[in-house]
Structures are given as C-alpha cells and as structure tokens.
Amino acid sequence: MTHDAGFWVLQALNALQLSMLLFLLSVGLTVIFGLMHFVNLAHGALYALGAYVAASVAGAWGGFWVGLIVAPIAVAAMGVVLYGGLIRRMRRSGPMAQVLVTFGLIFALLDLTRIIWGDVALASDVPALLEGQVRLLGVDYPAYRLFVIGLGLAVLAVLAFVLGRTQIGAMIRAGVDNDAMAACLGIDVERLFFVVFCVGCALAGLAGAVAAPLLSVTPDMGLQILIPVLIVIVIGGLGSLKGAIAGALIYGVVQTFGAVLAPQLSSVLIYALLALVLVTRPTGLFPAKG
C-alpha cells in the first residue's frame, strides 16, 4: 500500500474529528460516573434526542445555528426531568439497579423518539457558512468537520479550565475524590450532582446536534453510539477527564487507521484493545481516585 503524505493527514483529521465527537459524549458520562458512581446507559439516547431536536429546529425554523443552541437546552431540560423522576431516587441503589433502570430508559426513549419523529431517517444540512472545503496542511478538508474538531477542542479547553481553575471545579474534583469528605467540607453534594448531571446531558445534546449533519438521524443512533462511548470511558478509566480524552483519541485513531491499514481486522481491533486494557489495567488507563 502506498499513500502520500496528504492521505495520512486526511486520515489523521478524520481520526481527530471522530475522537472529538466521542469526547463530547464521553466526558459528560464519565464525570457523572466519577461524581455519582452512576452509569447512565441512556446517555446515548439523550444524544439521539439532541440530534432530533437540532434537525427539527434547523428544518422548521432558524437553521443549523439555532438548532445547535436549542438542542443542548432541550436535552438538559430532559435531564432535569430524569434527575427529578428517576436518578435522584436511584442514587442509593447499587450499580446493577442503576444500569438496569437506565437500560429501561433506553428502551423508553427509543420508542418515544419513534413516536414523535417516526421511523424514517431525518436529514440535516451543513450550515451555509461551513459548506465546502478548506485547504489545510496540503489537503482539502470539509470545513464542517474542521468545525467539529474546533468545537471539541474548545469544549475541552473550557472544561479543563472550569475543572482545574474555578471553585466549582475544585468542588467537583473533591466530590470525585471522596464525596463523603466533600459533604463534610460543606459542599452541597446533591446540588453539585444535579448541576453536573444537567451539564453532562447538555453536552450529549450538543454532540447530537453536531453529529446530525454528519450522520443520518435515526432512532437507533443512540444505541449505535453507546458502545463506542462506553469503550472510550472504560479504556480511559471511568470518572476522569484525562481518561475521556485519551480514550476518545485512542478510539478515533484505532478505528480510522485500523480501517485503512488492516481492513479485515478493523472491526475486531478496538474490542481486542479494550479486552487488552481490561486485562492489564482492570480500571482503565487513567482511573479517577476514590
């Protein structure tokens, strides 16, 4: 196989774009887990919801940019409902019960989206501003995909700043380390959970809105993304921001370059890698403390 440098640049950009999309989804899930020890399997369903909302809003009213704003808000609102109705009550249950409740939620949300939007795939267009290609490092690359990479990096920067430099970030870190201790220090842990849960949901909605023009919007897109997201956070180590980044990058690179270099193996490769990580580092590469 001979490929020129441009080809590899293209693949690297593709890998990065996939990584950033996965990062947007994983980070909410992983921080929720780190803080609440709660695995929300319905996170993917929230992402699908975000995609539907964004596609509908874009189609009906203001176009892509309005959808990009509305989707995270709508999904966060859904998060508020879920938190009040289910999550809060399941806080003291074991992980098994939580996994099952959110599994039930996947089923329910899947059919809810089908009831509201039907079974046909919804198409969503790339905004006019981001149509066409941009020349970068010697290759032509779709502007929209560059936008996804940029958005991912921007969210990463904001999160790193909030978690690392602000008071609420310090509170979250304290909660991830040891929530009993954090409560003793006078942090309102319940409220912190609530806020983090809603932000996580909003990020899932954002990821859905961003993904809508890239993929076709279907009811089972949440199910399809769930496994990659879980792989990302388990490889990275549940509960850590660093883990979400590392996991997302590893997934993006393995998936993209695997398809090019070893097409026969590519689908098995990522699972084999996950198995390898779990065997050698049973709690992932960058496990959160506590």
Binding site: V101, G104, I106, A108, L110, I115
Partner: peptide, 9 residues
Amino acid sequence: HLVTGLVLI
C-alpha cells in the same frame, strides 16, 4: 419497547 422499558424501570 416503550412498555418493556417502563415495566423494567
């Protein structure tokens, strides 16, 4: 699926 999900929950 909706019914199953709600029953499970």
